[in-house]
Amino acid sequence: MSEPTHESEPVRIPDHDLDDLVATVTRLVADSRKQGETLARLTDDQPSQEDDAQVGPVHPEGAESPSAPARGNSDASEEDGPASVFILALGAKAYAEELAALTNWVHDLLLPVYGREITTGRPWCRQWQEHPEAVARLHALWLAWQQLTDVKAGLTGPSTWHRDHLDPALLQLRTPDGPFGACTTSAARPHHRLLASPEPAGV
Rank of each mutant, 00 (worst) to 15 (best):
A196F: 01
A136K: 11
I13P: 02
A187R: 06
D150I: 03
P198R: 06
C183P: 04
P123A: 02
H139V: 01
L28G: 12
P66L: 07
R41K: 09
T120F: 12
R189L: 13
L18Q: 15
D108W: 05
P66V: 05
Q49G: 05
W128M: 03
A94D: 12
N104A: 13
E79L: 14
F180A: 04
W124Y: 05
A134C: 01
L155Y: 07
P57K: 02
L141V: 08
L39G: 09
W124C: 01
H191A: 09
A92V: 03
I87G: 07
A96M: 02
T24K: 13
L110D: 06
T184V: 08
A23I: 06
D167C: 04
T119F: 03
G121E: 15
D20H: 12
D75H: 08
Q129Y: 05
C183K: 05
T156V: 13
Q147H: 13
H59N: 00
L111R: 10
L195K: 11
R12P: 00
R174D: 06
P112I: 04
T184Q: 10
L110I: 09
R174T: 09
Q49W: 08
A153M: 07
N73C: 08
P123C: 01
H16C: 10
A92K: 10
H6D: 15
T119P: 04
V25W: 07
H162S: 13
A187E: 12
V203N: 06
L88G: 04
L102P: 01
A169T: 15
Q129F: 00
T5V: 09
A68K: 03
D80Q: 14
L39S: 14
A94H: 13
L90K: 09
T156Y: 12
A92W: 00
L141K: 03
P66Q: 08
R193Y: 06
Q147E: 15
L21E: 11
T160G: 02
V11N: 02
L155R: 15
Q35D: 13
D80Y: 13
A100M: 02
T26S: 11
P200R: 04
T185D: 04
G62V: 02
G81A: 01
R41V: 01
T160D: 12
C125R: 04
Y114C: 13
S84D: 09
N104T: 14
A101K: 14
Q46A: 15
D164F: 07
W142Q: 11
L42C: 06
L109C: 08
Q127Y: 03
H107Q: 14
R71K: 11
L138D: 06
L21N: 08
Y114R: 09
F180T: 07
P200C: 06
A144E: 09
L171T: 12
G81H: 02
V55I: 07
D177M: 10
W142Y: 15
G81N: 06
P112F: 07
G154V: 03
A89E: 11
L90G: 02
P60L: 12
G91L: 08
D80G: 12
E50W: 08
L173T: 01
L166G: 06
G178E: 07
S48Q: 06
E3F: 11
